[in-house]
Simulated scan of single mutants.
Amino acid sequence: MKKMKIYFNRWFSVTYHYMNAIRDNEDGMEFEIYGTHPDPGHMALQGCDVAEVEPRVTGREYVDFCLDFCRRHQIDVFIPRWNMLDISRHISLFEEIGTRVIVCSDTELLEQLMEKDRFYESVREKGIMEIPDYFTVSNAAQFQQAYEALRARGHDVCFKPCNGEGGMGFRVINNESDPLQELFGYALNSISYEDALRAFSSAPSFPNVMVMEVLEGYEYSIDCLSDRNGKLLTAIPRRKERGRLRLLEENEELLAIARNVAEVYRIPYNFNIQMKYRKDTPKLLEINPRMSGGLHMSCLSGVNFPYLAVKSALGHDIGPLHPKFGILGSHIEQPFIIDVQKVSGVHHV
């Protein structure tokens, strides 16, 4: 049986773990891993059997690059992160050359998921979980009004770009910090109201930002696995503990939310729901329609999330899954010898 060819485009460094999880699968299926990234020294490329440097382009031009890559290398399964929406819009072009794409093909839903305020409104309409108090702003006056309204409701305030990823652009407004003390401490994600307003006032408008209540309770990432039709197969609530500790917790309230999200939105393959508690109420932060940056921690449950998504994309049924909960996990850095030949051998396209 020939090795199946899997292609990751521009992903996170932790994708190195996901590539190895696919290789080290429980069924003994054999794979070749292909990858592209604009940085030839990126860690994700070290996990690849074949790697190339991709061009710094977007839109249809980037889709054409990925399509050509899949055609040249006869890729069986493509797992995109960068430019997911454009790739999803042209998924039929990949299917025509025999490449299956692990992406949400419902482009309207994908657009909502990438614009957090739009998705919040969808969740509010469907009533499947609680969302934070928030306002969407695009100029300094709107920011000032949103801040004052949330403070009047008794909330501490934070903000984040509507289309941000991970912690990019996230700030908590803190008016009681000591600037001198902060200079000698760790870099923080806080900012004073005056500094935020000054920054937002430096331009007549800016891309949409969500100004919202600060949630002070436990934060969870719920890693979910569905089949190619969006039927939920399993979910792992992963609670952030102090430092790098993560607890895989059998939280029935959050598992019910995962089932509701899957039933309503039918997101295929891997997706991640981020929740945070306000007192006893979990509220939505965001949903990522892809493998999360911490998915390797949830794999400690015994569920091989990256491989099972590939297995489903290839048309195989996934049997009953029995994840282990109550696991407290963490990770540490490990010295790694870079394969210089692999990096220097990567050719520019």
Rank of each mutant, 00 (worst) to 15 (best):
Q112F: 07
S205Q: 04
M43A: 08
F135R: 14
V346G: 06
F65Q: 07
E30N: 12
R56A: 06
Y265V: 05
S92K: 05
T15M: 00
M291N: 04
N175A: 03
E54P: 04
S177K: 12
P80S: 05
N83W: 03
G164E: 02
H17T: 06
S312M: 02
E95S: 06
K3D: 11
E121G: 00
N288L: 02
H42F: 14
R81Y: 15
M4I: 05
F143M: 02
V103Y: 04
A203C: 12
Y193P: 02
Q144L: 10
A51M: 06
G326W: 04
L245Q: 06
P38T: 15
C66D: 13
S301V: 03
L215T: 04
S122F: 00
V303I: 11
D195F: 04
G167Y: 09
E26S: 11
C224V: 03
A44G: 01
Q145N: 03
A196Y: 01
G230Q: 10
N270P: 08
H90R: 07
Y34C: 02
V123S: 07
G41R: 11
G41Y: 14
L110R: 15
G154C: 09
D133E: 14
D27E: 12
M129F: 01
A196V: 04
C66F: 05
I332A: 13
L85T: 09
